[in-house]
Amino acid sequence: MSTITAQTDFDVKGLCIAAPGKSDVDDFVRLINEKLAPAGVNTLVLRVDFGYEYKSRPELRSGNPLSETDVKKIVSACKKHNINLIPQVNLLGHQSWASEIGKLLEVYPQFDETPSIKLPAEYKWPNPDGLYCKSYCPQHPDVHAVVFDLVDEIIEVFESDAFHAGMDEVFYIAHDDCERCKGGDPAVLFAGEVAKIRNHLAQNDKKLWIWGDRLIDGKTTGIGLWEGSYNNTHRAIDLISKDVVINDWHYEKAHATPVLFASKGFDVIACPWRTPEVATNQVKMIGMLKNNASGEMKPRYKGIMHTFWSGARTFIDGMNDVEKAKDDPSVKTFKELVKVW
């Protein structure tokens, strides 16, 4: 396979993808060796969530989780190619999906921010409850003892210098259903949760990465409910530590919001998904911003990270031109992205 020549000087040329299933680990390692490294990928965010054989909290293992041996195969491949490997466990939001409760709230229902709102047998959006995904209560006195056990263990096994906490699309926060949070300021609560996670990581010199959508005013910008905030969490941008790394995802247009984050003092990474033109425009935008930035702003434009939201098996097959997956739009976008980054 011929190596693709890099066209930019980005610090981050990344891929965010679900951790592979146990039976796909060896194929995923081959993908790293034969496809990702030659394409210039230097950062790999793996969405692990509860798919690891946690020893500290075995009750939070999902079915057929990755073992330490499985993870070390991936760690070894990434080290071989100098790829920065960062694990992700969704914190705060995304504690349910459609009609399925996530493992944390299944095992610890007392952490639910909205205990009286039940998941429907058939999920639809919009709905009367404003239900997209459940959140845990950031002010529950016991929640951080549990989630930080997961965070510490997953960072250690992945031998990582950073942790991705997700924290995107948090619709349930300061909810009237929560006896601790009702009446609170969503921005203060969101910023407080970011601070708790960031400060916990900083004790061991680890960095926090999060998605940026909750820090964008979705109404004023017109970016909307998903890629921006309608529930006033956006004011937290002025309340959180500047060493939090922002993953600024936009999937329909190459919105110029990296300027917002960089001007506030954050390192920022633009993140596309399934539209090649958007991805290539994001590369051009970050390049333009770096080239025209002040000395202070220039290093904050870190680069670009592709996001893949189907299973790792689909990505593996798509990258290997397996018929059933080769036309996946996100795979096609990634293939176009690596030609220009």
Score class of each variant (00 low, 15 high):
residue 296 E to I: 06
residue 299 P to E: 04
residue 312 A to Y: 10
residue 287 G to P: 00
residue 292 N to P: 04
residue 300 R to G: 01
residue 313 R to K: 15
residue 296 E to H: 07
residue 288 M to N: 14
residue 305 M to Q: 11
residue 287 G to Y: 10
residue 308 F to P: 02
residue 291 N to V: 01
residue 307 T to G: 03
residue 287 G to V: 00
residue 284 K to F: 02
residue 305 M to L: 02
residue 293 A to K: 09
residue 288 M to L: 13
residue 286 I to Q: 09
residue 285 M to L: 15
residue 285 M to R: 13
residue 295 G to R: 07
residue 294 S to V: 03
residue 297 M to P: 05
residue 307 T to Y: 10
residue 309 W to I: 01
residue 282 Q to A: 06
residue 284 K to Y: 02
residue 297 M to N: 06
residue 299 P to N: 08
residue 301 Y to E: 06
residue 282 Q to L: 09
residue 302 K to W: 06
residue 309 W to H: 14
residue 313 R to I: 02
residue 289 L to W: 07
residue 290 K to D: 05
residue 307 T to S: 13
residue 295 G to W: 01
residue 296 E to N: 09
residue 312 A to D: 09
residue 287 G to I: 01
residue 282 Q to C: 10
residue 302 K to N: 00
residue 292 N to C: 11
residue 281 N to I: 03
residue 306 H to G: 03
residue 310 S to F: 10
residue 288 M to E: 10
residue 296 E to A: 14
residue 306 H to P: 08
residue 287 G to S: 15
residue 311 G to W: 02
residue 282 Q to K: 14
residue 309 W to F: 12
residue 312 A to W: 07
residue 287 G to T: 09
residue 302 K to Y: 04
residue 283 V to A: 11
residue 307 T to H: 11
residue 283 V to W: 15
residue 285 M to T: 11
residue 309 W to E: 11
residue 299 P to F: 01
residue 313 R to L: 01
residue 283 V to L: 12
residue 280 T to Y: 01
residue 290 K to G: 06
residue 295 G to Q: 09
residue 307 T to R: 07
residue 312 A to Q: 04
residue 282 Q to H: 09
residue 302 K to C: 05
residue 281 N to L: 04
residue 288 M to R: 13
residue 310 S to K: 13
residue 306 H to F: 08
residue 281 N to G: 00
residue 292 N to Y: 12
residue 296 E to G: 02
residue 291 N to D: 15
residue 301 Y to R: 14
residue 311 G to K: 13
residue 283 V to T: 05
residue 284 K to G: 01
residue 295 G to K: 03
residue 301 Y to D: 04
residue 311 G to N: 14
residue 291 N to L: 03
residue 307 T to D: 05
residue 302 K to G: 03
residue 294 S to H: 00
residue 293 A to Q: 06
residue 282 Q to I: 07
residue 289 L to M: 12
residue 297 M to D: 04
residue 291 N to Y: 01
residue 295 G to P: 02
residue 283 V to C: 11
residue 307 T to L: 04
residue 288 M to K: 14
residue 282 Q to N: 11
residue 303 G to V: 03
residue 292 N to G: 10
residue 311 G to M: 07
residue 292 N to F: 08
residue 286 I to E: 11
residue 297 M to L: 15
residue 295 G to N: 14
residue 310 S to H: 12
residue 310 S to R: 12
residue 300 R to A: 06
residue 303 G to K: 11
residue 302 K to P: 00
residue 280 T to G: 00
residue 302 K to T: 02
residue 313 R to M: 04
residue 300 R to S: 06
residue 297 M to V: 03
residue 301 Y to K: 14
residue 302 K to S: 12
residue 311 G to R: 12
residue 300 R to E: 04
residue 283 V to K: 12
residue 301 Y to I: 00
residue 301 Y to V: 00
residue 285 M to Q: 15
residue 300 R to D: 03
residue 286 I to L: 13
residue 298 K to E: 14
residue 312 A to V: 13
residue 287 G to W: 09
residue 290 K to N: 10
residue 283 V to N: 09
residue 282 Q to E: 10
residue 296 E to Y: 10
residue 313 R to S: 11
residue 286 I to R: 11
residue 294 S to C: 07
residue 302 K to D: 04
residue 287 G to M: 08
residue 306 H to N: 11
residue 299 P to I: 00
residue 297 M to S: 14
residue 306 H to R: 08
residue 300 R to V: 05
residue 293 A to T: 02
residue 293 A to I: 03
